Amino acid sequence: EMEYEEITLERGNSGLGFSIAGGTDNPHIGDDPSIFITKIIPGGAAAQDGRLRVNDSILFVNEVDVREVTHSAAVEALKEAGSIVRLYVMRRKP
């Protein structure tokens, strides 16, 4: 069973403070093209906020749908998102 969360982060000097993997051209798990959080960087915006978790998958960055995009398109969406970034994420319920 999945749960969904909308997380708004303010981009810090060091960016959003997380790493991603995945994409249609580089699936992270099997042939699932989802964009997954692979690392939360200590002291970064995501770590300070505390809600984003490793293995969360990002569905939307602001209004941009990143469910079926290449890795570089997801990176671009995050880069272009401005200083306030709304992430709509999905994760397995614990």
Rank of each mutant, 00 (worst) to 15 (best):
E1D: 13
M2T: 02
M2C: 02
E3P: 02
Y4C: 03
E5D: 11
E5M: 15
E5A: 10
E6R: 04
I7A: 03
I7V: 10
T8M: 04
L9K: 00
E10Q: 04
G12M: 13
G12K: 08
G12C: 03
N13A: 13
L16T: 06
L16C: 07
G17E: 05
F18I: 09
I20L: 14
I20V: 07
A21M: 07
A21F: 10
G22C: 03
G23C: 02
G23R: 10
G23K: 08
T24Y: 14
T24L: 07
D25P: 05
N26V: 07
N26D: 15
P27T: 09
P27Q: 09
P27I: 15
H28I: 15
H28N: 09
H28S: 08
D32W: 03
P33Y: 13
I35V: 09
I35W: 02
I35F: 11
I35P: 13
I37E: 00
K39Q: 15
I40W: 12
I40L: 07
P42V: 12
P42Y: 12
G44Q: 02
A45I: 02
A46W: 02
A47W: 06
L52K: 00
R53D: 12
R53G: 03
V54H: 01
N55K: 11
D56T: 04
D56G: 00
I58C: 05
F60G: 08
V61T: 08
V61M: 10
N62C: 10
V64I: 07
V64A: 08
D65P: 14
E68W: 04
V69I: 07
V69S: 15
V69F: 14
T70M: 11
H71F: 03
S72C: 11
S72D: 02
A74R: 00
V75F: 06
V75C: 08
V75L: 14
E76Y: 04
E76V: 14
E76C: 07
A77L: 06
A77Y: 05
K79I: 01
K79Y: 01
E80L: 15
A81Q: 05
A81M: 07
G82M: 03
S83L: 04
I84V: 04
I84L: 13
R86V: 07
Y88F: 01
V89I: 06
V89E: 00
R91P: 12
P94M: 02
P94H: 11
